[in-house]
Simulated assay, not measured.
Amino acid sequence: MKIPQIEKLSKPLIEKVAIIGAGLGGLAVAVALRKLGYDVQVYEKAQDFRPVGGGLGLMPNGLNCLNAIEPEIVKNIRNSGCEVNTSILKNTQGETIRTNPATRYQDKYGQPLVTIWWWHLQQVLVSQLPDDVIHLNHRCIDFKQDDSGVEIYFDAAQKVNADLLIGADGINSAIREVLIADGKPRYLGSMSWRAVIQSNQDILKPGELGFVRGNKEFMYLLNVADGYISWLYRRLSSDCELSQNVDLVKSRVLYQLADWGESLRSLVEATPAEQILEGPICDRLPLNFWSQGRVALLGDAAHPMAPALGQGANSAFEDAYELALCFSEASSIQEALANYEQRRIPRTQLIQTRSALGEMRYYETDNEAAARQMQEQSQMSSEEFQNWLLNYKPYE
């Protein structure tokens, strides 16, 4: 069954929508709500758009929802990223152990697996919005609401009014803190380092996605188009302290890769220190509600998850599509947000939980993995879960 397209309404439910955060989810829902006919304004704390972020994988569930929002987005994503046709398992010396075809995504779910630079994806979404819709250098610090609207406050004594406020401002969401006040994110015991660099090395061919498994450590290698490669290194660590400066970040990674092969170490060596992103892998426990009154959460602000299943961006695109759909069908804000929560929360609760478990599976020994698989035989199998995850159809 094809997902219904987002189309302009004869009469929108409300007029003004304010979105906090010009990340992937915030931009996607801005495009969707504008297509319905809403006056949408996006407020972003960054002072400019610059080449940031690592590589990520877009999966059929996310791509299908983006396609239902605006088909041109998916067309541009496929032009700006790399379609994966082969996954490769390597050892820490850079030697290929096994290759597997990845074409089953297109065959089975109607969309390919696409790897893309986060920044390029952000620019694809930005290109769908007029320049005067996005307001940079706006750090949201608070909001107040009543029956007639929401007043939103920024740190430079600026304020705006809206009929609806959407918090799409990430795992450390200011909107979530005011709305729910559930404290800091939960550290999952895994530290991350990642970067995107231009590379002419032969370590990864077009259409390939590489995975390197070490001892309580691993690395992903992603082609992200135009000669750029994204490397993502993670390591089990009880210490989540950040390095004091960018040079220490780079030397820390190289120290941890001391025994790895030259082809892999050289990727890190060739990366300018200031381009390496270091951070702890965190999530939050699932919530039972994402909205109050005229304020709702979306994406990582609503359901931050470990990256193990690659569903952070993809589930945010599901949110964007579903929220817009709810506002195209409901007769009140309350009905729209209640339907949004009902459609999204049970699904994302399961994805969050499986993602946290998946993060720890990266570090299992073979014996631990075998024992876990025995315990999970009575639960949804990995294949059943993947089918449920990637074959997402909102109306079924």
Score class of each variant (00 low, 15 high):
Gly227Lys: 10
Tyr228Val: 01
Tyr233Glu: 06
Tyr233Trp: 13
Tyr233Thr: 10
Arg234Cys: 14
Arg235Gly: 01
Leu236Met: 09
Ser238Ala: 14
Asp239Lys: 10
Cys240Tyr: 10
Glu241Met: 03
Leu242Ser: 06
Leu242Asn: 04
Leu242Tyr: 02
Leu242Glu: 06
Ser243Asn: 08
Gln244Asn: 13
Asn245Phe: 03
Asn245Arg: 01
Leu248Ser: 11
Leu248Lys: 12
Lys250Asn: 11
Ser251Asp: 07
Val253Asn: 06
Leu254Met: 14
Leu254Thr: 10
Tyr255Thr: 13
Gln256Arg: 14
Leu257Lys: 12
Leu257Ile: 14
Leu257Arg: 12
Ala258Glu: 12
Trp260His: 12
Trp260Gln: 12
Gly261Gln: 11
Gly261Trp: 13
Gly261Arg: 10
Glu262Met: 09
Glu262Leu: 12
Glu262Asp: 14
Ser263Cys: 15
Ser263Ala: 14
Leu264His: 13
Arg265Asn: 15
Ser266Leu: 14
Ser266His: 13
Ser266Pro: 02
Ser266Asp: 14
Ser266Tyr: 11
Val268Asp: 05
Pro272Asn: 10
Pro272Leu: 09
Ala273Asp: 09
Ala273Gln: 08
Glu274Ile: 05
Gln275His: 13
Ile276Phe: 03
Leu277Phe: 10
Pro280Gln: 08
Pro280Ile: 10
Pro280Ala: 13
Ile281Met: 10
Asp283Met: 03
Leu285Tyr: 09
Leu285Pro: 01
Leu287Ala: 05
Asn288His: 11
Asn288Lys: 12
Asn288Trp: 08
Phe289Trp: 08
Trp290Gln: 09
Ser291Gln: 11
Ser291Val: 13
Ser291Met: 12
Gln292Asp: 15
Gln292Asn: 15
Gln292Lys: 15
Gln292Met: 15
Gly293Gln: 15
Val295Tyr: 03
Val295Glu: 03
Leu298Arg: 08
Leu298Ser: 07
Gly299Met: 00
Gly299Asp: 00
Ala301Phe: 06
Ala302Val: 02
Pro304Val: 03
Pro304Arg: 00
Met305Ala: 06
Met305Pro: 01
Ala306Lys: 02
Pro307Asp: 00
Leu309Thr: 08
Gly310Gln: 04
Gly310Trp: 07
Gln311Asp: 00
Gln311Tyr: 00
Gln311Gly: 02
Gly312Cys: 01
Gly312Glu: 01
Asn314Glu: 04
Ser315Glu: 01
Asp319Pro: 06
Ala320His: 00
Glu322Cys: 11
Glu322Trp: 06
Ala324His: 03
Ala324Gly: 15
Ala324Asn: 01
Ala324Thr: 05
Leu325Ala: 09
Leu325Phe: 02
Leu325His: 09
Leu325Asp: 05
Ser328Cys: 07
Ser328Asp: 04
Ser328Ala: 14
Glu329Trp: 02
Ser331Thr: 15
Ser332Asp: 11
Ser332Trp: 10
Ile333Tyr: 10
Gln334Val: 14
Gln334Phe: 13
Gln334Asp: 15
Gln334Arg: 15
Glu335Gln: 15
Glu335Ile: 11
Ala336Gly: 08
Ala336Tyr: 04
Ala336His: 05
Leu337Lys: 07
Leu337Thr: 08
Leu337Glu: 02
Ala338Cys: 07
Tyr340Met: 00
Glu341Cys: 07
Glu341Ala: 06
Gln342Met: 11
Arg344Phe: 05
Ile345Pro: 07
Pro346Glu: 12
Pro346Ser: 05
Arg347Lys: 07
Thr348Phe: 00
Thr348Glu: 03
Gln349Asp: 04
Gln349His: 12
